[in-house]
Amino acid sequence: MDETKDNGWGPLSALPGNPLIWVLILGELFVFTALFAFYGGARAAEPQIFQASQRMLDPLAGGINTMVLLTSGLFAALAIEALARDEVSLCRRWLTSAIGLGSVFCAVKIWEYWDKISQGLMPDTNTFFTYYYMLTGFHFIHVVVGLVLLALVLRFTSMENVETAAAFWHMVDLIWIFLYPLLYLLR
C-alpha cells in the first residue's frame, strides 16, 4: 500500500492498488455471494438431482485447479514484494509465472467443459448444470480478465499497477476458494 497515496478516495485509499478496482472487486464479491445463495435455494428444491449431478464432477481436477490458482496468487504477491525492493525484472518474472499458471487453470477448466459436453452434460441438462456452467463460466471470464490485467502490468510496471492487477487476481482466487467446495465437494 502506498503511504503517499492521494486521500481523495476516502476509505478506499487504505486499500492496495487503484481504488477504482476495489469498487469492482467489492461489487463482484457480493454478486457471487448472491449467486451462491440462489444456488443453495435451487439445491434445496431438487436435492437428489443436484447430488447425482455433483457426483459427475471430478473433485481431483477441481482440487488441482485450486492449487494451481493459489500458487499463481502466490506469484502475484511475490511480484509486489520484488517490486518493493526495486527488482523490476524479478517482478516481471513472477508476473509471467502467475500468467503461466493462470493459463494452466484455464486449460484444465476447458478440458473439464469438453469432458462434460462430450458426455452430453449441457447447461440445459438440469438445474445443477445450469448453475455449474453459469458460476464457473462467470468465474472463467474473471480469470481471463485477470490474465489480461497481469499481462498489461508486465508492460506498464509500477507499484500501483501491479497492486491493482494482483488485487483483482486475488479476488479471482477468493471466489474459486468458495466455488470449489460448493460445486465439487459438498455433495
Binding site: 451462491f36 468458495f178 459438498l186
Partner: peptide, 15 residues
C-alpha cells in the same frame, strides 16, 4: 463469514 454461512446454510437446507 457471511459467504461461509451462505454456503453452509445452502448445504444444510437440502439435507
Amino acid at each position: 463469514m457471511l459467504t461461509t454461512l451462505v454456503i453452509l446454510g445452502s448445504y444444510m437446507l437440502s439435507e
